[in-house]
């Protein structure tokens, strides 16, 4: 069965055309990136501000716990049958707006929690020193808190990205675009190998996105150069160095 699935994936015909793997993959990517960008615009400023002020921590941490419990498909169904409707929303297909809203809601928790925790966990002494030397609140945030919180924040973005990509598959359940269409087609035709092929595509996509994000995280980490700098250890005193001259 895995063999059939791979055969399906390796068949060039299946990749081209308006109902081909290529088109669906690009649609899913578009959904994912739009939802992620919207969630970042919505959630990050609030979370970062709250973290800087060291407030609403309980809320920020528990929004992830609550968010995990929400069934995304149920939300999508309710929105598409209800207030948001199921009109075609440009390249996002049928019920595109409802799908985007559901995915944004789904992406918010990891973004918010990580942004908040990242900022609040920055060493308080460093923040106090920066305030004490006359940095404005804005400068403290931009020059000290944000760079030092970047690894944790980026991890939140990475989590959200991969989660949204994998979940965007459900758009097919409201006749929307994306790789989920391959899976539903497989189900309808009772062709397990097609279902598996679709699932494989989503999984591989997730791995690729994760890998790219890890690279991005590494690049964006301001401590990257600091960590790799080994230099002379603090306690190294070379034998020919006279002790009184050693700066301790």
């Amino acid at each position: 069965m895995l063999g059939d699935a791979l055969a399906y994936l390796f068949d060039a015909d299946n990749w081209s055309g308006p109902a081909g793997i290529g088109t669906f993959a690009i649609q899913q990517l578009l959904l994912t990136i739009t939802a992620l960008a919207a969630a970042m615009l919505l959630g990050l400023p609030l979370a970062l501000w709250a973290g800087h002020r060291h407030r609403y921590g309980f809320l920020a941490i528990n929004v992830s716990n609550v968010g995990r419990a929400v069934p995304v498909f149920a939300v999508l169904l309710v929105l598409s049958l209800g207030p948001v409707g199921s009109e075609t929303f440009g390249p996002y297909g049928r019920a595109g707006l409802a799908t985007l809203i559901s995915l944004v809601l789904f992406a918010l928790p990891p973004l918010i929690t990580n942004a908040h925790v990242g900022i609040t966990e920055v060493d308080r002494d460093i923040v106090e020193a920066s305030r004490g030397m006359g940095m404005s609140e804005g400068k403290v945030f931009s020059s000290v808190e944000l760079p030092l919180a970047m690894p944790v924040i980026m991890t939140g973005v990475r989590l959200a990205l991969v989660q949204v990509w994998a979940t965007a598959t459900i758009a097919a359940l409201v006749a929307g675009p994306g790789l989920g269409r391959i899976i539903t087609r497989g189900f309808a035709n009772q062709s397990t190998s097609v279902v598996v092929a679709g699932a494989l595509l989503v999984a591989i996509g997730a791995l690729v996105l994760e890998g790219l994000m890890v690279l991005a995280e590494r690049y964006a980490d301001p401590m990257r150069r600091a960590r790799s700098a080994r230099g002379n250890g603090p306690t190294t005193v070379r034998p020919d160095e006279l002790l009184p001259d050693a700066v301790v």
């Binding site: 060493d123 002494d125 460093i126 004490g132 030397m133 006359g134 940095m135 030092l148």
Partner: peptide, 21 residues
């Protein structure tokens, strides 16, 4: 206060150097 603090040197026990610089 921000302007005030720029004109006053401040040294703390944990030093608080910026590790990324």
């Amino acid at each position: 206060p921000v302007h005030l603090r720029r004109g006053i040197g401040y040294v703390i026990q944990q030093i608080g150097l910026f590790p990324h610089q």
